[in-house]
Amino acid sequence: MEKTISIDTVYVPSEEVVARQVGGEFVLVPISAGVGDFEDAVFTLNEEGKAIWDRMDGKRTLREIALDLGTEYDTPIEEIQRDVIGFTEELFRRRILHQIPRQE
């Protein structure tokens, strides 16, 4: 059964992924077999995706990231939370993100 994403959990990028600016694109390049979902796939993030990614610093929960984004985007907080969870789900199931215990 797939693990569900918890909004009060901290997620961080896997060390088996490199985030790069390539030309005009922000690209995630999986390094090890089993990360991502097929061999020559990379993942590009749009501006909002990058804004979420940049906040995944190993300290903030998804709820805190959404709150922070709420100060920048003129969007209802519930909608931002939905987006942050959707983004995390997408990358978590590909093992590009993993969850870590919150550091106190």
Binding site: F43, E48, G49, D83
Partner: peptide
């Protein structure tokens, strides 16, 4: 925030640049 449809787009390396 959801003005754009996809935050993450999967591409092959060869099709990265259109």
């Amino acid at each position: 925030m959801s003005s754009t449809t996809e935050f993450v787009v999967r591409k092959s390396l060869n099709s990265l640049f259109s």
